[in-house]
């Protein structure tokens, strides 16, 4: 028995309304705003020296953070799902912890460590290093915030996979590397890809934590989200939305890849 047709229609229309007003309109708004003053202004905003430096820095931070977090994610998922050990639940909670910590607090923690008056402050200045208000600080903060993403996607996939296929590979004489490459990786590739994409999206877009540790030095430690904030505060709305539209495009691509992956895994399990 299905519910009354009227209720069904009402629910569907409420959903349409909600999605359109809450998600679709804001998304379209970004692109409209970005192109409001014409393509020339749009291109100028993107090709501006400071914008380009912000894009470069964001890409650099992402290129460092994502591979490291991916390595971590695979390691953590492997240890947690294929072995039994004490304190597994605790480890899982610790991995999820960055989700429950405000990005602002994440940034604060690294300030407490590395600022000149911080715990490691004197050591760092003695060596002539700069971490806070510099690229390493931004990388550290981003790593903290994006730490759980890959592990979180992989753990359920590997858990569902079980151990038998890997045991079979070993029993047939494969070494650890062959087992991983030929058996584990093909089984987890979609989950891994999705985790990497989510991790990248967050790394590109992280604002609060980065905002604290970067010091917002224009042309030096400004990432894309920090750059649009500055533009916005200077009432350069078209330019702010132009840079924002680049990141939104990335977000839309992320969603497309996600839908595509889900479609693939769905059809391949059938």
């Amino acid at each position: 028995m299905r519910e009354h047709k009227g209720i069904k229609l009402a629910l569907i229309f409420t959903m349409y309304g909600y999605i359109i007003l809450f998600l679709l309109v804001p998304l379209l708004f970004i692109f409209t705003k970005a192109l409001e003053q014409g393509v020339a202004v749009y291109l100028a905003a993107i090709l501006d020296e400071e914008a380009r430096s912000a894009i470069r820095l964001t890409l650099l931070v992402t290129a460092i953070t994502v591979p490291l977090n991916t390595l971590f994610g695979i390691s953590a998922a492997w240890a947690i799902t294929k072995f039994d050990f004490k304190g597994k639940q605790l480890l899982l909670s610790l991995i999820e912890l960055p989700f429950a910590v405000s990005p602002v607090i994440a940034g604060l923690m690294f300030i407490l460590f590395f600022s000149p008056s911080g715990v490691l402050g004197t050591v760092i200045t003695d060596f002539g290093l700069r971490i806070i208000f510099s690229v390493p600080g931004i990388v550290l903060a981003t790593m903290f915030v994006t730490l759980p993403f890959v592990a979180r996607e992989l753990i359920p996939v590997m858990e569902a996979q079980g151990r038998a296929e890997e045991e079979a590979a070993i029993s047939l004489g494969a070494n650890g590397f062959q087992m991983f490459k030929r058996v584990t990786l093909p089984a987890i590739k979609w989950g891994l890809l999705y985790g990497v994409i989510l991790c990248s999206a967050r790394a590109v877009g992280e604002f609060g934590a980065v905002s604290i540790v970067s010091g917002r030095i224009r042309g030096m430690t400004n990432t894309m989200p920090l750059h649009i904030e500055i533009l916005y505060n200077e009432y350069q709305f078209a330019a702010a939305f132009a840079v924002a539209s680049l990141m939104s495009l990335l977000a839309v691509i992320t969603l497309f890849i996600k839908v595509w992956i889900e479609h693939r895994t769905h059809t391949s399990t059938r």
Binding site: E167, I170, S171, N175, P186, A187
Partner: peptide
């Protein structure tokens, strides 16, 4: 296990799905 020369058939076969 890989030095023992055993053939093992798993309960749910554990075939490589891909």
């Amino acid at each position: 296990i890989n030095q023992r020369d055993v053939g093992f058939v798993f309960q749910h076969y554990a075939l490589f799905k891909h």
